[in-house]
C-alpha cells in the first residue's frame, strides 16, 4: 500500500448543485500532491471531505488503507484558504489549545511550540494577541499551528497567499523539509510556479470532475507535442525557413540569444525522431540552439481545462 490517502468515487451535492462528481484520487505516501483546478472546480469541497468537515453523498475515503474515522483528524493538519485565529487570545495559549484539540497533550504541545518558535525566531510573540500581529506574522503562526501536532498528512490551501517573498521561501523550505521527514502533503493552489517547484504528483479538477491525475513528469511526457525550439544560422535565413516549412509545421520562436539566428519551433510528425531532425538541420545550416519544448504545469493546466470544456 503505497498511498496514504485514497478517494474513491466521491460525489457531493449541495441541493441541485453538484460540487464533486464521482471523483477519485490517490495520494502516494511522502509525496507533495498538487490539487489543482480553476475556481469553483470542487477542490475545497474535496479537501473538506478529507477533513471530515462535510460528508460525501457517496463514495469513500481511505486513510492509510482504512476507511477514514473521526480520530484521523489528529493525524491531519489543515491550513484552510479562509484562515483566521481568535483575535483576542494570546498566541502561545491559542496554539496550545488548538494542538490539544488535535489530540496532543499539553506538555507535548508546549514543547513543540517552543521548537517552532525558536526555529522561526518568534519566541517573543508568545504572549502577544493575534490582533497585535501583522497579517504576515499571523500567517506564520497559522502555519506553525497547522504543522505542530506532527500530522502524517498536511493539507495546504493557498499556503503562500499573503506572504512576502522572504516568508514564502521560508515556508517553502519548511514544506520540503517536512516532506523529507516523511510527511505527505496535499497542496492546493492557483500558483503554477509553486506547483512546478514543489509537486511531484498532481490531480486536476474542473467543473466537479477530475480530468487529470498522475506523476507530474509522466503527465508532462504525455502533454509534450514533439516540438523543438531551434536556432539556425545560414546565408539565407528566409529561404531556409521556407524550405523547412515545406517539410515540418513550424512557428516563430522567441528566446534570448547573442546571434541573429533564425528562431523556430518545429513540430515533428509521429515518424520523425529528434536525431532525424538534427541531422537534417545540420546539413542545411549551423545549429546554435536545439531544445525540446516540455510543457510546464501552467500549460498543462490551461490545455487540460480547455480540452475538458471542448468535450463538455
Amino acid at each position: 500500500m503505497n498511498n496514504l490517502l485514497v478517494v474513491e468515487n466521491v460525489t457531493k451535492q449541495f441541493g441541485d448543485f453538484t460540487a464533486l462528481n464521482n471523483v477519485s484520487i490517490s495520494v502516494p505516501k511522502n509525496s507533495i500532491f498538487g490539487l489543482l483546478g480553476p475556481n469553483g472546480a470542487g477542490k475545497t469541497t474535496l479537501i473538506r471531505i478529507i477533513n471530515q468537515i462535510t460528508m460525501p453523498d457517496s463514495g469513500k475515503v481511505l486513510f492509510d488503507g482504512k476507511p477514514l474515522k473521526p480520530e484521523d483528524v489528529h493525524t491531519i493538519g489543515y491550513l484552510p484558504e479562509e484562515r483566521g485565529l481568535y483575535k483576542n487570545m494570546k498566541v502561545g495559549e491559542q496554539a496550545i489549545y488548538l494542538a490539544m484539540l488535535k489530540g496532543m497533550s499539553k506538555k507535548d504541545a508546549k514543547e513543540n511550540l517552543k521548537y517552532w518558535f525558536d526555529k522561526f525566531d518568534i519566541a517573543s510573540w508568545w504572549n502577544k494577541k493575534i490582533s497585535e500581529l501583522s497579517k504576515g506574522q499571523a500567517q506564520k503562526i497559522q502555519f506553525v499551528i497547522t504543522v505542530m501536532h506532527k500530522p502524517k498528512l498536511l493539507i495546504f490551501d493557498e499556503v503562500f497567499s499573503g506572504l512576502d517573498p522572504i516568508n514564502a521561501n521560508l515556508i517553502r523550505d519548511e514544506i520540503l523539509e517536512l516532506r523529507k521527514n516523511g510527511t505527505t502533503i496535499i497542496f492546493s493552489t492557483h500558483r503554477m510556479e509553486s506547483v512546478e517547484e514543489l509537486c511531484d504528483h498532481i490531480a486536476l479538477l474542473d467543473h466537479s470532475n477530475k480530468i487529470l491525475e498522475g506523476n507530474l513528469n509522466d503527465i508532462k511526457k504525455e502533454f509534450k507535442t514533439n516540438t523543438f525550439e531551434v536556432g539556425l544560422n545560414s546565408d539565407n535565413n528566409d529561404a531556409l525557413e521556407k524550405e523547412i516549412s515545406e517539410r515540418f509545421s513550424i512557428s516563430k520562436a522567441s528566446y534570448k540569444s547573442l546571434e541573429n539566428d533564425l528562431k523556430l519551433n518545429i513540430k515533428l510528425g509521429v515518424n520523425n525522431t529528434s536525431s532525424d531532425l538534427i541531422q537534417y538541420l545540420s546539413s542545411k545550416a549551423q545549429v546554435n540552439h536545439f531544445v525540446e519544448i516540455i510543457p510546464n504545469a501552467s500549460d498543462i493546466f490551461i490545455q487540460a481545462v480547455k480540452n475538458n470544456s471542448n468535450e463538455g
Partner: peptide, 17 residues
C-alpha cells in the same frame, strides 16, 4: 459569530465536531 468573523471556524471544525 466571533468564530465566523475571525475565520477560525474552518480550523476548529477540522479538529472537532
Amino acid at each position: 459569530i466571533e468564530e465566523k468573523t475571525s475565520r477560525i471556524i474552518e480550523v476548529i471544525i477540522s479538529s472537532i465536531k
